[in-house]
Design a protein around this nucleic acid. Sequence first.
DNA 1: CGTCTTTGTAACCATTGCAGTCACAATTTC
DNA 2: GAAATTGTGACTGCAATGGTTACAAAGACG
Lengths: 143, 143
Amino acid sequence: MNTRFSVAVHILTFLQTQRGEPATSELVASSVGTNPSLIRRLMGQLIKAGLASAQRGTGGGAVLGRPASEITLLDVHRAIDEDSDVIPIHQSANLRCPVGRHIQGALERRIDAVERAMNGELARTTIADLASDVTRRARRTHA
Amino acid sequence: MNTRFSVAVHILTFLQTQRGEPATSELVASSVGTNPSLIRRLMGQLIKAGLASAQRGTGGGAVLGRPASEITLLDVHRAIDEDSDVIPIHQSANLRCPVGRHIQGALERRIDAVERAMNGELARTTIADLASDVTRRARRTHA
DNA sequence: CGTCTTTGTAACCATTGCAGTCACAATTTC
DNA sequence: GAAATTGTGACTGCAATGGTTACAAAGACG
């Protein structure tokens, strides 16, 4: 079902709630409900994108790579789903048919616009927003 | 890769260029570059959504279910990808962790907004737009 | 130096979804 | 009745995903 984006967001939000204290992949995995190896694989992509960093050895773990207020959902999406189209276009069309030859270009323009709209919306939320939302919800529940 | 949406758009655009003349699944398949059975399966969803209709037997085939100017890409998307989330959320989160318990609700709100933005953009283009775009491009190429 | 902790990564498996294909009954035209 | 065509079920092959194990590399600490 490709829930990697939402797991990545969960990871980063979790790191933010740790306030700089390194979180091991095992700790994160227990919050996400999966296993540490999977977390480390995803974390690798986040680190490569500069959204997190990690240290090995005793007392090691992962922390955010920059302030949570400067990490948007668009950043996360780009780090995780780099080269996957939101709405892919079939490449099989018959070029000897007018429709087949031109539908791709015509559709592409519209789909690009859809993607821009999506990205604009994703860019409006930061990990800091989500983390404060989560803690606010938690306070309300336990009041 | 799930190119069903783009194939469905191709199908409807093709039907529009046929100007009311029924198109057989074989003809459509040759434009899309796949086989008739696949076209018929997709067509079934388009018909169920009222975007097309079909007749069996000699001289049969499919036509648009309503004017191309009244079929938006959003209609197509809803007909084809009915119950698939654009950005799915993992359901495995550990509810004993504050982040795990509240991340889903917090994320959902934002993702709903992303989906609304996407839908708004999809609704701006109709099959008539695409068909005229395609014929315009065809004219230009062959000039 | 040796042990323990932890990451980084490769390898593998099971499941799922998609595209492709075949087959055939049902329907319609002639 | 014959031919054309849809509608649909079944099956296959392939790729992506999530899950799991294993282990070398790196760091902390006695």
